[in-house]
Write a protein that binds this DNA or RNA. Structure first.
Lengths: 284, 284
DNA sequence: TCTATCTATCGAAAATTTCGATAGTGGTCA
DNA sequence: TGACCACTATCGAAATTTTCGATAGATAGA
């Protein structure tokens, strides 16, 4: 089974015609016909129903379609990853939620980079699910996250516990259900617990990335939202933010996830730096 | 890119030798050499480092390994699903550790098949890491597993807690460190906790599959090993097995993992059956 | 019935793959 | 140091596969 059979299949499926697929693929129509026939021989059933108006997918063809896409994607991905496998002596991709980048890690990462020029570091902010997925598929090397998961072959190490509190920049305390509430998605655990505690406050998901700081947005707009205590404490002290009475608090452990089998020369300076920075926030 | 290049690569990786791979694949050594060279031309870098002692994976080869597995699996899955595409309306692949197949699910699956002839079910036994990997890559639709993970787009649902106890078929209680102990790998959590509790008892990993039942092996050979209590309770009652005093017990929750977005007509009868069967084992 | 438009097949040429033989490389041992 | 062994790489030939251009076959529409 050659990936080109899958590519040809996908092009015929897209164009609806052997001739058009041939043009797009720069081969002759008879080559397309032969390839599709070859594919059908391998699969044991036809994938297209031919007619004067072209070719339509059969039930088997519809079943095969997602596999054909997967084959092409896996192969493309393989080529990409293999081609990157020795560009840097070490390249480490780190992921964490945005709050941990801004509040804890970014300055230290910059400093670490200058101390270890041989090690390329890429920092990614993302939601928990995305970070988990990328750890598993190998496009992320280590992550700091709220959910204690165990991707295969990784070590999960507790760093500290993060307390989330509701704060508001409004002069008067917001009422439940009030439109000044902004839901920030701090991960699936928070999402679930928040939905349980405040089912009436669920809003469409808000996606965070490294470039934006929702705290500034809340300060500027008299909104209320949940934030890690560690970030809002200075603003509470100065009166810029207030804590509404009787609002739920959520506490989630923060974990460091990194490969068991790793190049310690590359990883351990980063791991140690993360442990030091996070040590400041450890509660007893 | 032909899937046979991936298969050849995997066989060389497994055997460590072009010659052995050639024997296993029923082709000549020069064909293996040519195929690996062809693969390396496509990827743009070597995947094996050749030596007199055989062939070892390079960094690029290690990167490529998981993609090669994925290519082979996607194609196998494609063939299976396409071949079933007009026999069954839906095909659902279920994975679980062997103990859950034999002790809980197999009879029920057989019964369910006769009740829902339009739904093809394939049952796979495997270790936790493999099941997780296959859920993520889409070659497994739902799984029952010990580790609470959250593959993207899946629901994780607690079923029951499984207690693992040490049992022996020997007449006299085995001593720690004794050679009658057989280590069975019940998953990464068990492996880790076991290594912590009994560092002197770690043995090379034992792989389980659906065809073998380690309990029969223990009964026949006067060995001791850890098993789920639910499986060994009848043997303990009858005196065929004994529990050594003061041995550690391990308890792990069992979860059902299935897609959030799913064809409920196909999935829900299976999910309900699994919940019913597992309901028997729920402890308070 | 004719025309147009599509796919299927044919035979030839080109390209690729496989084989058996053997060259090349390098480790081990006397 | 040389012989031997065990592995992979390469060669040339043969086998197989793939592609092409030409054309047959099928079918819808005018």
């Amino acid at each position: 089974m050659d990936i080109n059979l899958a590519r040809t299949f996908l092009m015929v499926a897209e164009t609806g015609s052997f001739i058009d697929a041939a043009h797009r693929l720069n081969i002759t129509q008879s080559t397309v016909s032969a390839r599709i026939k070859g594919l059908e021989d391998l699969l044991g059933r036809p994938v297209f129903e031919r007619s004067k108006s072209g070719a339509d997918l059969t039930a088997a063809g519809e079943q095969f379609h997602k596999h054909a896409l997967a084959l092409v994607r896996v192969w493309q991905r393989a080529q990409l990853e293999v081609s990157l496998s020795d560009q840097h002596r070490d390249h480490i991709a780190i992921g964490a939620p945005a709050t941990l980048w801004h509040g804890v890690l970014l300055k230290s990462i910059a400093k670490l980079r200058s101390e270890t020029p041989d090690i390329a570091i890429s920092a990614t902010a993302g939601l928990q699910d995305v970070l988990t997925q990328r750890l598993i598929e190998g496009t992320l090397d280590l992550a700091i996250m709220y959910r204690p998961i165990q991707p295969p072959g990784h070590t999960v190490e507790h760093l500290f516990d993060e307390e989330f509190v509701l704060v508001t920049s409004a002069r008067t305390a917001p009422k439940k259900g009030s439109s000044d509430y902004m839901f920030i998605n701090w991960g699936a655990d928070f999402q679930r617990d928040h939905a349980t505690a405040y089912p009436e406050l669920i809003k469409p998901g808000l996606s965070l990335d490294l470039g934006s700081n929702p705290l500034e947005y809340v300060l500027a707009n008299e909104l209320s939202a949940y934030f890690p205590m560690r970030l809002v404490k200075p603003y509470l002290s100065r009166g810029r933010l207030k804590q509404p009475k009787r609002a739920r608090r959520f506490v989630y452990p923060v974990y460091l996830v990194y490969p068991e089998a790793r190049d310690e020369d590359a990883y351990d300076p980063i791991l140690d730096m993360i442990r030091r920075e996070c040590g400041r926030y450890a509660t007893d």
